[in-house]
Amino acid sequence: MVAKDRNQGKNQLRVGRLVKAHGLKGALKLELYTDNPERRFTPGAEFTLQVPEASPWHGKTVVVREYRVMNGNPVVFLEDVDDREGAETLVRAILWIDQDDDEVEDDAWFDHQLVGLDVVRDEVVVGKVVRVEHFPAQDLLIVRSGDQDIMVPFVQAIVPSVDVRAGRVIVTPPPGLFEELPDTTDTADAGESSGSDASE
């Protein structure tokens, strides 16, 4: 699941992250955030880079030279990146591409489509999405529940369904994400106390 972003007035979709250099000819292994990599990573496709300001690639774009799957892993070759040393300078960079509002991508939504949606667990509204945070590993939905903001990983296992038209997202959070777990120590102590009273 991917949250898309609006950057400098344009709609942008995060489509991948360069994970590590592969081989000696400048290839980079990809972590994909798109359901259609063959269409996204065609030769000549240009991506905006999200990298630290100290990176030599800050403010630059990259162009795809070749995309292929090697040993089950998606791999991309970029123009002007011809050796492993050059590829190493791009490790952990996130790739963004401009996208039209009416272009459909499975399991991907713009931030503005998610903000304001009710968050529903077991048919009960437990909060509302107030913003989306983008991180290299995953996106987070920031959910206002009562007087606190809860960070919900925007992944299929925890957010199995998004229904923008119905105005809600369905969540199946792990125990303790939306409520404090009972103190098992106190429960155990209470059991021991009642046991000792019964024996007396």
Rank of each mutant, 00 (worst) to 15 (best):
D147C: 04
S196D: 10
G127W: 09
E38M: 05
D186Y: 13
E38F: 07
E103F: 12
E200H: 13
N36G: 02
V62E: 03
E192V: 14
T184G: 00
T61R: 14
F178W: 12
R144S: 09
S199T: 14
T89E: 05
L49R: 09
G116L: 06
P173K: 04
Q8G: 00
A190E: 14
D189P: 00
L78V: 08
E53P: 01
R17P: 04
L24Q: 10
T172L: 08
N36L: 11
D102H: 10
K4T: 09
F178H: 08
W57M: 06
T34P: 05
T48W: 13
R84I: 06
P74V: 02
P174H: 10
A27S: 04
E105V: 12
E66V: 02
G127C: 06
L49W: 07
L24I: 06
F47G: 01
I142Y: 08
V2C: 03
F154G: 00
D83S: 03
L117M: 09
S55E: 08
G23N: 06
A27P: 00
D111E: 14
D83R: 00
V19Y: 03
K29D: 05
D186P: 00
T61F: 03
G195A: 15
K20P: 00
E66A: 06
R17C: 05
G23T: 10
E88C: 01
G86E: 13
D35W: 08
K60C: 02
L18S: 04
L117D: 05
A54I: 14
S199M: 09
V19W: 09
G26L: 04
P56E: 00
D186S: 14
M1A: 12
R65L: 14
Q138Y: 13
I94N: 09
A93G: 05
N36Q: 13
Q113W: 09
F41R: 01
